[in-house]
Design a protein around this nucleic acid. Sequence first.
RNA 1: GCCCCCAUCGUCUAGCGGCCUAGGACGUGGCCCUCUCAAGGCCAAAACAGGGGUUCGAGUCCCCUUGGGGGCACCA
Length: 497
Amino acid sequence: MAQEMKPVRVRFAPSPTGYLHLGSARTALYDYLIARKTKGQFILRIEDTDRKRLVEGAEQEMMDNLHWLGMDWDEGPDVGGPYEPYRQSDRKQIYQEYGEKLVEMGCAYYCFCTPERLAKVREEKQKKKEPPHYDRTCRSIPLEEARERIAAGEPYVLRFKTPLEGTTVVKDLLRGEITFENKTLDDYILIKSDGWALYHLAAAVDDHLMKITHVVRSSEWLPTSPLHSLIHQAFGWEEPIWVHLSVLLKPSGKGKMSKREAAELSSEGHSIFIKDMANLGYLPEAVVNWVALMGWSYDDHTEFFTMQDLIEKFSLEKLNPSPAAINFSKLDHFNKLHIKALSDVKLAERLQPYYESAGIHAELPLLEKLAPIIKERIITLDEAVEMTRFFFTEKAAYTTERILMNGCSSEETITCGELVLSALNELEDWSIENLDLVVRGLMEKAGKNPRQFLGFIREAISGQKITPPLFESMEILGKVVVLQRLKDALEFIKASF
RNA sequence: GCCCCCAUCGUCUAGCGGCCUAGGACGUGGCCCUCUCAAGGCCAAAACAGGGGUUCGAGUCCCCUUGGGGGCACCA
């Protein structure tokens, strides 16, 4: 039995600079799961201190996407909470105060170097094959002098006074202790010349003030994690438990997904953006199941999980630190499974919007009848529309060749067709069983095989190559429509051949 | 160039020293079933990167090499 964990406080802290993608959705999911599992709190914090990179509407869209996936949060910019505000742009003052404290404690200093000089330093260091770090020129400026220059209006940034010697050890939950030589670290900028804090300071301050117990984030943060530890230590704060997730690799397994490659994916009917998943016909349940398994596993045989299952079974300890390649065929697999797991009523409800956007007004009762016969043959929800199109059209759309019975002449086809037509016309009990019985009887009498005989009827009533099972379709279509389409087909053959 | 992380089938993974002639899933191939398409059933091919140790015993622990990945912004 899994041991009970103390309630955690975790935050998902996106910056509203783009769409929610697989990687961030997975981080949010793990946060959500561990919060719900331990009856703790899941907090949404918007990291929007970089005012230049803001994207209009991104924050709202991100929240919509999280909701679509089935997550909600206990504290956040929209729902409030005890540690408001939850948007970093509303906390500028707080970061400045804490930055000032660091200066007073001797753990940070003002730097007056211009971006131009910094670029030059970097260039020179790179030429000398040295780490392109700041040369610490301003580190030795006496504080009084620095304050005078600031008072005189000189632009400045705040830098962390990284220890020059010794090591900083970061305890990562998945990797154990990671040791960094302090001399390989930079004097990172904490507050920019425009007065806005950078991630490093803002996140550390907020994580502390918001009593975050576990920081779950992408392993891109591993290289700067010593700075984060150092900031917590400088203030004398207890560090949160660091959990650095593996990176998500592109399907080839070679490298991170780039913007361009993400765009290319859409031409293959795939996307790494959550906002596209619904349009592509994927269920949020499937996306959640799929994403959860990228870097996490439960045991050696269970793969199908609902959100509830995940909440019960998730544990941070089973997270895998090695990079994982995105596998879209696995998403298809999970989508199939979750479609099958849906009740007919639920599936009908999920299907309806796809018909609407295809310009088809499909009534729920009809979709509920269609649900059981298509649920095992569609991968994505949108495929239902094509497969069942003939239920919603006035006539079946015939193409010349296919309407003829496989390997038979037009005369032969007509003979068989008329046989079926008159027999079905007589049929009173319009049930699957009866249709099956009658039609197969005719087929034997005509000496045709199922491929020929049933194939012809399929074409006649649907005009489609791929359809749900024949007798089921006929039953749902109804006697009147089936007879009419049979007549249409025969007329079509007579006119065309 | 420097720092850091990672390493089992093509992919996601199980494995936390003997239960491993390495298990599952996706995908792939074959067969069966079959009214199209699916679904389902059965079967197959497919991996412990290499080298040193430690140990009675190593996929499992340690080291090195190699490979892959991430980072080195007044972005997050």
